[in-house]
Design a protein around this nucleic acid. Structure first.
Lengths: 350, 350
DNA sequence: GTCCACACGGACACCGGTGTCATAAGCATC
DNA sequence: GATGCTTATGACACCGGTGTCCGTGTGGAC
C-alpha cells in the first residue's frame, strides 16, 4: 500500500527494481537471472524466476539497448524490386524471430544510389542493430560487407552463389538448378533453346546464364548469340526481349527465362503472335512465384526455398551470438526443385 | 588533443557531452537545440547547430527512447495474407518515413489467433512504439483500437470504409468504386452479372458486395442468389467459386470478382471450359495487382492507391505529434479508378 | 540608480538496465 | 583456528540522453 501504485496508470510498467524488491535481492541479481548468468545460486534463481513469471515482468528493451550498446533489432536491407522475394524473405525471417526478443526493421535503399553506404552505415550504427540480412543484389556488394565488419555489425548475405565470404552467406545453387531445368528441356528433345538472361550486375543472372550454358555444353549443343536475349527481370523486359527470339527462323522450340516475370512476358509475346505454348514453344521460368499458376498454361519453373532461406539467415544471425541454443547448424546452401507444370512439351517438329 | 581520441576506434561515437564541450555549453543546452526548445539564444543555437552539422553528430536513439519513454519506431501490424497489399503499404509508409528519424518495424500476427491482443499489446508497450499502422482486416477490430487507446499508443487504421473512429482511419471508398465498375458493365449491355464475393469477416468484402448490389439496384436489375458465389480472396477460391456461376444456364455474361486473384481464378475457370473472354464472358477484378497484366486477356480492374494511402497513414502518425511540420492535412479518404483493359466487352447475344 | 521580470544556461537527478569490483559466506587446507 | 580459495551477492558508476529547478545576466520601467 505504502508506495505501491500498481493499478493507477494503464500498464503496471514493472522495473527491475520492483522485481528486486519483491524478491528481496538486488537489481544486479535480477539482471543475472535475466541474462542467465551461470554463477547464481539455484534457489535464488528459482525464486526470482517465479516472481518474474508471476508478475509478467519484461525488461525494458531501450534500457538494455543503452546499457549494452546493442539493440535487439534485426535489419532487413535491400535494393531489390522483387516484391515476391522480399516478402518471402521477410516471412522466413519473421518466423525465425517469432517468440524471441528480436524485432525486424525494414530498410530499402535506392539501387545504385551513391549514398547507399552512408545510408546503411547510419542505419546500422544509429539503431545499434544486432545484425542485418542483406538481399541480392545488394548482398553482392563486398564493400558493404567490409563496412559492416568494421562497424562490428553481424550480417548475413543472401545470394545465388557462394562469394568470398562463405560464413556470412545463405545461398541457393542457381547454376545447378538452371542446368537441371535445361537438361530437362534437352531430354524432351529440344535443341534450339533460347535464353532470356537477367540484367547485368545481378549475380543470380550470371549464375543462371552459366547454368544454361553448362547444360548446353554438356549436350554439345551450340549456342549462337542470337539465341540469347537480354532482360531486366521484369515482365515487360521479358516480353520485348523474347521478340527477337521469336522472330528467328528457325525459331527456338524452347526458351528459358531467368525469372518467372520474364517467363510470363515470353508467354504473353507468344500469345500475341499466335504461337501455341507448349505445342510450338516450351517455356521454363525461375522462382515459382504465384504468377506461374495464374497464366495459361501454368508455367514450369524452378522453385527455390526463399522462406526457408530467410529463416536460416535469421537463425544464423541470432544463433551465433546470444546462446539461443537453437539449431545454428542450419544449412547455408539450399537447393532448388524443378516444378513441372504445363509449359513444356517435346518440340512439335524436330 | 588532450582527451580527444576520435579516430581510434572505428566509429567516432559522439555523445551529447562531446558536442557540449566543443560548443562550450552544457549538455542541456545541446539537448535544447536538438529538441527545438524555443527559449534559446539565437547565437547559441546557431553555434551548436554548426558543430552538430560539422561533426555529423546524431543523438543516440536508445538513450532518447529511455529518457522519453517513447521510441521512434512505427509498427506495421497485419494479419493479412495479401502480399501485394502488404508490400505496397510498406512502400508507402517507408516513403513517408524516409529522411525522418523513424524506422519501420514489421509485426505480422496470426489471423484469428486468441493471443492477437496480447501479442500486439506486448509488442507496443515493450518497444514503446511511437505508433502503429494496422492493415485490414485486423484494422476492423475495435477492441484492438480501444486497447491501443488505453496504452496511449497512436495508431492509424487502414480500411475500406469509415468506421466509428474516423480520426484514426485512412480509407478507400470500395463501395462506390465497385458500383462504378458494375455500372460500366451495365453500360456495356450486361444484365446477368455474377459476383464472386470476398470472405466473411472482411469489411472490404462486404463493402464491395454492397457496391455491386447498389449498381444493380440502380439499374433495376434483379440479383438472384445463384449469381453470388462465395470466395476467399484467393486464386483457388475464385477458380472453384466461379464454377457454380459458369454452370448456370443461362450463364452470366459478366462476373465481378472482389479481388484480382479471384478474377484470375475466374479467367482460368473460363479457359478450362473453353469460354472465351471477353467475347462470351466479361470479367472485372479489384486491386490492380500485377497479375492483371500477366494473364490473357489483361484484366479490367479497380485500382486503389495503396502506396499513397500507406504514405498518408504514416504522415498522419508522425505528423500529429512532434511538430514535423509536414502537410498533416493529407486526405484520409482515397478514391479508386477503374482501369480498363481487355477483359470486358459487350455481351455477345443479349 | 534601483528594482524586477524574464530569458537563458547549468547542476543534478533520473529513465532502466548492465559492468566492475568489493565483500560476505562457505569450505577445505594446514 | 588462521589462511586461502571459491562462490554468491550487492554497492556503485555508467550508458546517453531529458526534466526540474535554480542561479545568473540583461534590459526596461520607475
Amino acid at each position: 500500500m505504502a508506495k505501491q501504485k500498481q493499478d493507477e496508470g494503464q500498464a503496471p510498467k514493472l522495473t527491475i527494481n520492483d522485481i528486486a524488491r519483491m524478491a528481496g535481492v538486488s537489481k544486479k541479481t535480477v539482471s543475472r537471472v535475466i541474462n542467465r548468468s551461470p554463477l547464481l545460486n539455484r534457489e535464488t534463481r528459482d525464486k526470482v524466476e517465479a516472481i518474474i513469471r508471476e508478475t509478467g515482468y519484461v525488461p525494458n528493451p531501450q534500457a538494455r539497448a543503452l546499457a549494452l550498446g546493442r539493440n535487439f533489432l534485426i535489419g532487413l536491407v535491400y535494393d531489390n524490386p522483387n516484391v515476391q522475394m522480399i516478402l518471402s524473405m521477410q516471412k522466413g525471417i519473421l518466423e525465425a524471430l517469432h517468440g524471441t526478443e528480436f524485432e525486424l526493421v525494414i530498410r530499402p535503399v535506392d539501387r545504385g544510389s551513391r549514398q547507399v553506404m552512408e545510408d546503411i552505415q547510419g542505419f546500422v550504427t544509429r539503431q545499434r542493430l544486432f545484425g542485418v540480412v542483406i538481399l541480392p543484389p545488394l548482398s553482392e556488394n563486398d564493400a558493404l560487407a567490409r563496412m559492416l565488419d568494421e562497424q562490428g555489425c553481424r550480417y548475413v548475405r543472401m545470394g545465388s552463389a557462394v562469394l568470398d565470404d562463405p560464413e556470412h552467406m545463405v545461398v541457393s545453387n542457381d547454376r545447378e538448378a538452371v542446368a537441371d531445368a535445361v537438361r530437362y528441356l534437352i531430354s524432351q528433345g529440344h535443341r534450339r533453346i533460347g535464353l532470356v538472361a537477367g540484367p547485368h550486375g545481378f549475380r543470380s543472372a550470371q549464375e543462371r546464364r552459366e547454368g544454361f550454358e553448362l547444360a548446353l555444353a554438356e549436350a554439345e549443343i551450340g549456342l549462337p548469340r542470337s539465341l540469347i536475349a537480354q532482360g531486366e527481370y521484369t515482365f515487360e523486359s521479358g516480353l520485348s526481349a523474347s521478340e527477337s527470339l521469336l522472330d528467328l527462323s528457325p525459331r527456338p522450340t524452347a526458351i528459358f527465362a531467368s525469372n518467372d516475370e520474364m517467363a510470363a512476358g515470353v508467354l504473353y509475346a507468344a500469345r500475341l503472335r499466335g504461337i501455341s505454348v507448349p505445342d510450338e514453344l516450351s517455356i521454363i521460368g525461375f522462382d515459382d512465384t504465384p504468377v506461374t499458376t495464374r497464366v495459361w498454361p501454368p508455367l514450369t519453373t524452378v522453385r527455390w526455398p526463399i522462406v526457408a532461406m530467410g529463416r536460416a539467415a535469421a537463425l544464423k544471425l541470432i544463433g551465433t551470438a546470444i546462446g539461443e541454443d537453437e539449431d545454428v547448424n542450419e544449412p547455408s546452401m539450399f537447393s532448388s526443385t524443378l516444378i513441372r507444370r504445363g509449359s513444356v512439351a517435346p518440340p512439335s517438329a524436330s
